[in-house]
Amino acid sequence: MESGDEHNQCMNPQSEDAGITIRLEDFEGPLDLLLHLIKREEIDIWDIPIARITEQYLDYLQIMKDLNINLAGDWLMMAANLIYIKSRMLVPQESTEETPEDEQTDPRTELVYQLLEHQKFKNAAEMLYTREEVENAVWNNPPSEILDDGSEVIAVTVFDLLRAFHEVVQRFDAQRVLEVEPEEITIEQQITEIRNRFVVHDKLLISTFFSEARSKRHLIVIFLALLELVRLREVWLYQKRVFGEIHIKKVKESG
């Protein structure tokens, strides 16, 4: 099971003592349970017997509680929603002249559309599952360390990077840019920014990033962000000749 921490507040304090808690929301949610009940009971979705379904839903909630399953708030919200719908069904709605009887909104309508919408995406997920099966059964030629253009490349060392950075800073000084940009970008923001670029691009020149620097401080932030991405092995740096331009290439997962 995946380990998450947020939204994992214990609704059942004893579960801590029992040592084992099961988190369900990674697998199924309240809508999945309702769909399950509707299918099992062969219920017409346009005419859900809300009292019966509510009762069964609450039974399941009790079972899960007994099993020490950690229930997220969504489950209780749905329970409250069901009880609310049930109570509205019991109260006959006044048919006024403005809203004739057949135009009154059924309190279940919203839930029905929610269920249909959910089922629609479950079907879409099934389609993705099948496609993934097929894709898992094919291989493409393994990626090599040779560039697409076949040229040999030289891995860039930290020192090459420092030299390149030094040059950029000098050029930057020579330009005498006025620092009027008050917004300060953090390394983390810069990393996200660079990552976003590589969603679209596979290769970029290091100078592309440096040329966007608005201040000397920003230059340093870009530099550190790139170092961090190299450390995380998300990108690798290369040049085609010694002292050549430094290129950044996105590291692809072997697939």
Partner: peptide
């Protein structure tokens, strides 16, 4: 769960976490 979330994102993009929650009925 991941495939369902992915399906919502694929069809509704660009989409926020709250919009995903509304469709899936769970975080």
């Amino acid at each position: 769960a991941a495939l369902e979330t992915l399906a919502v994102i694929a069809y509704k993009q660009p989409v926020t976490m709250a919009e995903i929650l509304a469709i899936r009925g769970k975080k």
